[in-house]
Design a binder for these strands. Structure first.
Lengths: 213, 213
DNA sequence: GTCTATATTTAGATAGAC
DNA sequence: GTCTATCTAAATATAGAC
């Protein structure tokens, strides 16, 4: 229990303050549950266990388990959009883009955010409402990648040959798939190796696209 | 009900014949359930509905719902290994490889096999046994792609720079991720566009790797 | 807002008739 | 092998005390 605070109403703390904290804890618990047990292992009781919370709070604050998952999807999409926009802003070359991708990957994978997203996407198959919530987040993601690609490949032959929207979509899909694959094997070293290779190849492609006279 | 057949025992049909057919129908129903409802919507009763079968048959033939899903994973892995080995055998160039990939994609996506696999992989998070069953199938997949890549990129600089195992792993992950993404949006045209671009790029890379003197 | 208790539904699994 | 009936456990969701 956090320390009580004085409020204008005279109660120990405002309803909105306390409720907001509980809602945050519920979302955090839902993320932990999705990460460890997957969408198939999610239930109000399982989530409550992960956050040492009361099961009934799920329904009071979010109406249903699905409602809580939708909230997680929307909150994460917002956070992801901010993080990616900030990091991708200064990208000028393909090598830069791969480098930023590597950085984002390390943060997001370490925190398990991509695993959560992958499980939510899988869960979208059994809930149209959850599907809608997830879709918004994916679009924000692919749009940001697409904009970065547009800057990097502008005025190059590759930009004319390849539809950027498709590449962005493929990149987002690849991250999702890698996270799912990582769940079935031990992984961990594989992704770093992959990014090292991408770094080398992207450097070569940059040279091809922008020859140093 | 299929037509009864005479058997040595004098019964209408042998136990093994009938049992095998029911097991097949249960697996088919489980696939349909995974495709339409996702791993979160799977239950013995839901599966039974999809195949117009009795719920108790799941437990008689496979011991548990998880057992049935494991059987689906292993059966699909076998089928996939055969299909891929056959198609990939004659691949000599990167453009060939992309073309075969496109063909396989069209068949597998149309039948929903990749969607089933994606849901099984997501479900592996809540069942180590299912995870083990799925992992075998993924390894067979990535190994076949890796062998094809080794043939295509043999004696080229790219083969030396890029660990083939990682690329194969990434390709398998990409297919999984694309299928999951396709579940949340309308998709359908996106993949064809992506393969068209890949076809163009792979042709260029082939030219770079094997210049026509 | 949070807790306990509970009503209701659904899922996993088994026993026994056929 | 397949079916009906049923037991048990777990899940969703709500009511009411605090």
């Amino acid at each position: 229990m956090p320390a009580a605070r004085r409020t204008p109403t005279g109660t120990h703390r405002t309803a909105s303050e306390s409720g907001a904290e509980t809602r945050d804890r519920l979302q955090a618990a839902a993320r932990a549950c999705l990460r460890q047990d997957g969408i198939a292992g999610v239930s109000a009781r399982a989530i409550a266990r992960h956050g040492d919370l009361n099961q009934a709070l799920v329904f009071y604050h979010f109406g249903s388990v699905d409602g809580l998952l939708q909230a997680v999807a929307r909150t994460d999409a917002e956070r992801r959009a901010l993080l990616y926009a900030e990091r991708l802003a200064g990208v000028k070359t393909l090598k830069d883009l791969v480098s930023v991708g590597h950085q984002i990957h390390q943060v997001e994978f370490a925190e398990g955010n991509t695993a959560v997203l992958a499980q939510l996407v899988a869960g979208a198959a059994s809930s149209p409402e959850l599907g809608a919530a997830v879709q918004d987040g994916m679009q924000a993601w692919t749009t940001l990648v697409e904009d970065a690609l547009a800057r990097v490949l502008a005025d190059t032959p590759l930009g004319a040959v390849v539809p950027l929207a498709d590449i962005a979509y493929a990149i987002a899909s690849l991250f999702l798939g890698l996270e799912l694959m990582g769940g079935v094997d031990g992984d961990s070293t594989r992704l770093d190796s992959l990014f090292t290779s991408l770094d080398a190849v992207s450097g070569l492609v940059d040279l091809l696209l922008h020859p140093p006279t």
